[in-house]
């Protein structure tokens, strides 16, 4: 069972398997902020999932929900992380408030 979950997690994260180390309960999904883009750009997760963004750029970025569906992050400097738990199904579009061309989507099922 654990192996099945891990495999699904790897696919969903586009190869970022580090977040899927053995742990009990729902595992956080990871979104990397790299080269002024979110990876993956679109992420589908089950309701109740915690999503963690990690800024891998030297530039600061700010996670901001379009339409204020969830709380914005503070300025994330290089290496900083921000986490949001999505409890309700829906499509959550977000962007970087200081580089608004950076847009991503979390689809909660």
């Amino acid at each position: 069972m654990k192996r099945t979950i891990r495999a699904a997690c790897v696919i969903a994260l586009g190869g970022m398997a580090m977040a899927c180390a053995a742990a009990n309960g729902p595992r956080p999904y990871q979104v990397a902020i790299q080269n002024f883009a979110f990876a993956p750009k679109t992420l589908s997760v089950p309701a109740g999932t915690r999503v963690v963004w990690t800024n891998r750029d030297d530039e600061p970025h700010v996670i901001t929900s379009a339409g204020a569906m969830f709380a914005s992050s503070k300025a994330l400097d290089g290496g900083d992380t921000y986490a949001v738990t999505f409890s309700k199904p829906g499509t959550y579009t977000y962007y970087c408030s200081i580089h608004p061309m950076m847009v991503g989507t979390i689809i909660v099922q």
Partner: peptide
Amino acid sequence: NVLNLKAGGL
């Protein structure tokens, strides 16, 4: 021109 920026905008 750096306030009230919209997702995907300039």
